[in-house]
Amino acid sequence: MATVADLIIKIEKRLGTAVTCQIINEQLLVDVAISDLLRVAKFLRDDNALRFSQLIDVCGVDFLHYGLSDWATDSSSSEGFSRGVGPGQYVAEEDIDFPARFAVVYQLLSIKYNHRLRLRCFAPGDTPRVPSVVDLWPAANWYEREAFDLYGILFDGHPDLRRLLTDYGFVGHPFRKDFPLIGEVEMRFDATEQRVVYEPVSIKPRTLVPKVIKHVGHNE
């Protein structure tokens, strides 16, 4: 297994400024712009020194609440749990800027050289559009349908972009960070109407464990 650093050299030599490589936890993350995605992906698959012949995974990521915590203070107080700011409200710990709210992440594997690579592509807007890689890796078909279903990311050129995991007739994209964990509708069988009916949820969202962000060294 070649080292990640060797891999970066190979990729940067051939792709130059089209990609930004970084090593996170000894794994290679390559950022690419939407306009370059198909070209870079095709290159990674076909180049003789890389041969990323297998697409392991495609997933969407929503960075809306990244770095936001629902714990209002760092210091201890006598107020206990009430320091939490409440469900659905967040406090920014620090400003983290992402190029866009949504990203699509591709996990690639080269069986020939035993490499892994993670390709990330930020997609701007509330209904982001990304070119589909189905023509390069047929495995992308369902993964892209899943990302469309759960995040509302549109894949241009996908042959059959239908919902995959959610219910028939589902409204919304449930894995977006602003979609409530309890959902929007609940379902029950109505004995008088003799059919299943959908109603707005009757339960309230609640936070069991508040999200706490601590900085390095705080755990010590």
Partner: peptide, 26 residues
């Protein structure tokens, strides 16, 4: 596979589960 993104909190920011059967069934 598990793809995990952390923003430094006590909860994962994003967990993606890569299941083998998903690719097979597709």
């Amino acid at each position: 596979g598990i793809y995990l993104i952390s923003d430094g909190a006590n909860k994962p920011y994003r967990v993606k589960i890569r299941a083998a059967g998903f690719a097979h069934l597709s």
